[in-house]
């Protein structure tokens, strides 16, 4: 059976990890924001900003890691904007997030057209090359999948550990979780809820920016309009799937990557019988199904989307 054979090709598993990488960054970023009680619907635009800022830095002569740093910075700046509007001002997190997405996306497109008024084919850069880990990359099937990837992919996996450690093993992580669960109690402990929430949103948004830069600095080598293609929204679904735990976020991103990589290959196999659009729809439909399945058992941060004002209940 050809459809099953696909599962035993190294290229499939390499693609799984590749597709999952930006989603890992984005999901971890959104997870940090939501753990602090802030829904960040700016994610789609913030990932676009990271993709554009990172790529432009490299195009203008910066190094690849410099591009990643600039992407993180761009993400953090839009995070600061979102955080300022929804935390001290207490604006609707839904509307503001959509506004941040519209703003950062349109700013990127405007800037792109300013820098390249009349290009017909998108300018290219030299992207990250896969980094082979000696010995380990020779393991059949898993070697090429896990140990011949872009350095950014290794960073994504490292971030899962780092974010887990941060949230559960550091005082700062405890502070983030507390302001997301019970801001009044955090205040009583002498924490500054506003500052902690804004910083958490900035940190999370920086991760989203890095996730966006994976698309232009590793997966592709140029910047296109509409290139995020809903990845940000999928990350939001993955956060619910993960029940707000970094480890499960990794699992969710990998499952999603497996599904997406598999449908791409199945599509080539079955293109005659089934319209290709059906396969392309699957990732979005799958995200919705995941939300339904998980909805029963999730314990979401209790202060999520609840603005906090001193003295108000």
């Amino acid at each position: 059976m050809e459809a099953l054979d696909i599962l035993f090709t190294a290229s499939l598993w390499a693609a799984v990890i590749r597709i999952a990488s930006p989603l890992i960054f984005g999901t971890l970023g959104e997870l940090i924001c939501e753990r602090a009680g802030v829904l960040n619907l700016g994610i789609e635009g913030i990932m676009t900003a990271g993709a554009f800022a990172g790529w432009l830095t490299v195009y203008l002569g910066g190094g690849l890691w410099m591009g990643v740093a600039v992407a993180a910075l761009a993400g953090a700046m839009f995070g600061l904007l979102h955080g300022t509007l929804v935390v001290p001002l207490g604006l609707s997190q839904h509307v503001t997030g959509i506004g941040v997405t519209l703003l950062s996306t349109s700013l990127c497109y405007y800037a792109y057209r300013l820098v390249f008024p009349e290009v017909t084919s998108p300018p290219k850069i030299e992207p990250f090359q896969p980094l082979s880990v000696p010995v380990l990359s020779d393991i059949p099937l898993l070697g090429p999948a896990l140990f011949q990837q872009s350095p950014l992919t290794y960073l994504a996996f490292a971030m899962v550990v780092a974010v887990s450690w941060f949230l559960y093993r550091t005082p700062a992580g405890l502070a983030v979780r507390t302001v997301g669960e019970n801001p009044a109690a955090a205040e009583a402990q002498g924490m500054n809820v506003t500052t902690i929430r804004i910083l958490a949103v900035m940190a999370g948004s920086a991760l989203m920016g890095v996730g966006g830069s994976f698309i232009t600095l590793s997966a592709f080598n140029s910047f296109f309009f509409e290139m995020m293609n809903g990845r940000g929204w999928i990350c939001i679904a993955l956060v619910v799937f993960s029940a707000w735990h970094p480890g499960k976020a990794l699992l969710g991103a990998l499952l999603f990557g497996l599904f997406d990589a598999y449908q791409l290959r199945l599509q080539q196999l079955a293109s005659a019988a089934v319209p290709y659009q059906v396969f392309l729809m699957m990732p979005y439909v799958l995200s919705i199904i995941a939300l339904i399945v998980m909805s029963r058992r999730v314990a979401y941060p209790r202060a999520l989307m609840v603005p906090y004002r001193k003295g108000e209940r």
Binding site: L85, Y109, R113
Partner: peptide, 20 residues
């Protein structure tokens, strides 16, 4: 010759400043 994307930027900034 100014990119027409300025329209989207204008609409988005109006949205954010208006809700504030």
């Amino acid at each position: 010759g100014v990119p027409s994307y300025i329209a989207q930027v204008m609409v988005a900034t109006s949205l954010l400043s208006m809700v504030s």
